[in-house]
Amino acid sequence: MRSKVVIGRLFRNRQARYGSIALILLVALAYIGPFLGSYDWTDKDFLAFLSPPSADHWWGTTTIGQDMYAVTLRGMQKSIIIGLLVALISTGLAAVVGAFAGYFGGWVDKFLMWGVDLLLVLPSFLIIAIISPRLRGATWLWFVVLLAAFAWMITSRVVRSMTLSLREREYVLAAVYMGIPRWKIIFRHIVPNLSSLLIIDATLNVSAAVIGEAALSFFGFGIQPPDVSLGTLIAEGSRNATGYPWLFAFPAGLLVLLVLSINLIGDGLRDALDPGSNS
């Protein structure tokens, strides 16, 4: 019932509507698009190096003759997957850590928040940058874990402070007085009532992770070749963006559109889920 109301309100919100449409189109492009093109992203066309967009190579080709259309979409797939996974992991972690710290208080709280502080103090860019090139052989999932590990702390603090106030809510007290175990109360009464915050946060985390991945890859600290992501493509393209603009324009444009559409949805969700806020 409530979800229907929320979805209804989401689509009445113009920002969110445009955002969702754009996102659906982008995802479709990333996953269906490759079947429409005539080249695979691993193919190399030795007759066309650095050729501008044409009927054959829609978005032009790279220095080594890869089809830019295929490569870019492949990169976008990776960026989307990374964004989703990072958001899922980091928001989940934030919810659990924040809710436990807030609900149990005492030394559990002290210990967890201390960990949060430590992670906040560590320069995440630096740590990821040192570790990730060493993961060259390993799967890119490690990179996702690394990104997620540095993305949850602020949210968990917010979750914690909201839990502190939820803890005193009468329905939580009622559950305590019924004799329900505390961990069950957290998952039954606390986390669901933070769902608005968590959904919004997860959405915005997707775009943050997409940007984060791109930023790290920009310096070569992210996704490692031969694999590609929007970040690696932009890095490559920006080096000679003036001479061969198609190398830069397509990945950069898609990245901006992707982030923009997700942010629009996130902001629209905030309106739809939280009638009190005007944001």
Partner: peptide
């Protein structure tokens, strides 16, 4: 929506 590195570039 435009990351800093993109904006700067």
């Amino acid at each position: 929506a435009i990351p800093v590195f993109l904006m700067a570039t």
